[in-house]
């Protein structure tokens, strides 16, 4: 009888001891932490494998062609094909996005944050914007096909492509990124403390004067971060362009084509070149030219992302 009690006491003492030392010889917490770490390492490992694989495959082209790969245009000959046409296309699309989506998006954010009363209608607009941001990009392609391509044709800029040109692509891409511009701008404006606004109102400034001279200067770095990330998105999107008739094959504008002819003619973009080269019948295109185009695309995106992170670090202001 007494023996049992003692061994029970022993067991209890061991249990308490183990609990106090938070597990002591218990391997399970360590294994749990190990599993989490493994997940983290795997996530980054995939990134490393992906980049290594792409760069290894791209290396022969990068080595043989050097910078001329970036400055050469489309060609059917893998020896001379470059991504210049795509870079130009992407830059034009990004410029149209900047011209259309940034002013509209930032203004909409200012309205929602600074002017709109907190009522059902405002919340409806807010929800709509957030839901729009999650609509698959290919749906925006269909929107462009049904609305913006005919629109461009209607205003007489259809050109040889009947509206399936870079102008329609730019408008479509602007519609795609608009919700993202609005959301990131709202976040930036919201982070400006109310006291800053009150200081402005206190000296008799109107709403617009407060926005222009108090809110905007403080919110601008944050807004810029968002817009730069948006440009990165516009640079990387492929699917909507495929739907609205981007050229996936070889084309070349006539040597004497005017700027308007070029703008309304066939076009391509950097990510679309990756796609179309991956389906070429000549092996060299898929084997090494497409990876090299990916390298160019990733460098552009990393630069844009780097700029955004730099801006964000500058913007992180403690009030």
């Amino acid at each position: 009888m007494s023996i049992t009690t003692r061994s029970n006491k022993e067991a209890t003492r061991r249990e308490v001891d183990r609990a106090i030392r938070s597990g002591g010889g218990d391997w399970r917490p360590l294994a749990f932490q190990g599993l989490l770490l493994l997940a983290l390492i795997t996530s980054f490992g995939i990134l490393v494998v992906l980049l290594t694989d792409i760069v290894t495959n791209a290396w022969p082209t990068i080595q043989a062609r050097g910078f001329s790969f970036v400055t050469d245009g489309l060609s059917l000959n893998p020896e001379t094909a470059g991504v210049f046409t795509g870079i130009i296309g992407s830059v034009i699309i990004a410029s149209i996005v900047a011209l259309l989506a940034f002013p509209i998006g930032i203004s909409a954010a200012v309205y929602l944050e600074e002017y709109a009363p907190d009522n059902r209608r405002t919340r409806f607009v807010d929800t709509t914007v957030r839901n729009l941001a999650g609509v698959p990009s290919i749906v925006y392609g269909l929107l462009g096909l049904a609305m913006f391509v005919p629109l461009v044709r209607m205003i007489g800029l259809g050109g040889s492509t009947g509206g399936k040109n870079i102008l329609a692509a730019g408008i479509t891409m602007a519609a795609l990124v608009l919700p993202i511009v609005i959301i990131t701008s709202i976040e930036a404006i919201r982070s400006v403390p109310a006291t800053i606004r009150e200081a402005g109102f206190g000296v008799g400034a109107t709403q617009w004067e407060v926005i222009r001279s108090h809110v905007m200067p403080s919110a601008l770095p944050g807004i810029l971060t968002g817009t730069v990330l948006t440009l990165a998105r516009a640079f990387g999107e492929t699917a909507p362009l495929l739907v609205i008739g981007v050229a996936t094959g070889y084309f070349a504008p006539a040597g004497d084509a005017s700027i308007l002819d070029r703008l309304t003619g066939p076009y391509t973009a950097l990510p679309v070149i990756v796609f179309s080269w991956s389906r070429q019948t000549q092996a060299a295109f898929a084997d090494t030219l497409a990876p090299a185009a990916i390298v160019v695309l990733l460098i552009v995106l990393f630069l844009l992302n780097g700029a955004a992170i730099w801006l964000r670090n500058r913007a992180e202001k403690r009030w």
Binding site: L50, I54, L229, A232, R233, F235, G236, E237, T238, A239, P271, V272, V274, F275, S278, A290, P291, I294, L297, L298, L301, N305
Partner: peptide
Amino acid sequence: GIPSVVLGF
């Protein structure tokens, strides 16, 4: 931020 066309390839 890696474009999906890269992951597709």
